[in-house]
């Protein structure tokens, strides 16, 4: 199976143009703060308000969202009912892989996390991005062995950034 190329800027433009409420987290948020690590997908925390879910479903329809890693042909439909009944979705689309998180360990929902974000310009799009301090906490809370390197890099980044502001 071929590896689809994730079109980071197109995914974020799609979400932004549809006026979906979301917060950038994960590897792309780390990059926004200065991380040099690669990431293969887009991770966002989305608002679970009904109107936001409706916008999300409508915006994603043209890019054929499907469960990542699932066998093809399953009766999966990314519609409002599916999103309401579920919470976190790891999807593959025509634009690449995207994770839509209704809740995130250590950060809660969109509404609780939004206080720890700042607005940043990425790919010429203005986006809400989780702060570096909060991103470190999210990685710590996830408690995954694969995140140890990422936490080390993000803490080093925080130290370097603090040195610049001294």
């Amino acid at each position: 199976m071929s590896t689809p190329e994730t079109q980071f800027s197109n995914i974020l433009a799609l979400l932004s143009e549809a006026e979906i409420e979301f917060i950038l987290v994960g590897g792309l948020a780390a990059m926004a703060h200065g991380s040099a690590a690669a990431t293969l997908d887009v991770d966002v925390v989305y608002s679970r308000k009904p109107e936001n879910i409706a916008k999300l479903v409508k915006a994603l329809k043209p890019v054929s969202p499907y469960l990542r890693g699932a066998a093809p042909g399953l009766p999966f439909e990314f519609d409002e009912k599916t999103v309401r009944m579920g919470l976190n979705f790891t999807l593959t689309t025509k634009l690449g892989d995207v994770d839509f998180l209704g809740e995130i360990a250590g950060g809660g929902t969109f509404e609780t996390l939004v206080a720890q974000t700042d607005r940043r310009m990425l790919f010429d799009i203005s986006l809400l991005c989780v702060t570096l301090e909060k991103l470190i906490q999210l990685k710590q809370a996830a408690g995954r062995p694969k995140d140890l390197n990422a936490i080390a890099e993000l803490q080093a980044l925080l130290e370097e950034r603090n040195k610049l502001s001294e």
């Binding site: 980071f8 800027s9 990059m31 926004a32 703060h33 200065g34 991380s35 040099a36 940043r120 310009m121 990425l122 790919f123 010429d124 991005c129 140890l148 390197n149 936490i151 080390a152 890099e153 803490q155 080093a156 980044l157 370097e160 950034r161 610049l164």
Partner: peptide, 28 residues
């Protein structure tokens, strides 16, 4: 984490910190 931190290439981070987030996204 302190053990892992010893292997972090800080020169890359310092270079990235010189860029704006938008410039970082294009480089990425």
């Amino acid at each position: 984490i302190e053990v892992f931190k010893k292997d972090v290439d800080r020169t890359m981070l310092r270079e990235n910190l010189k860029l704006t987030p938008n410039e970082r996204s294009r480089k990425f």
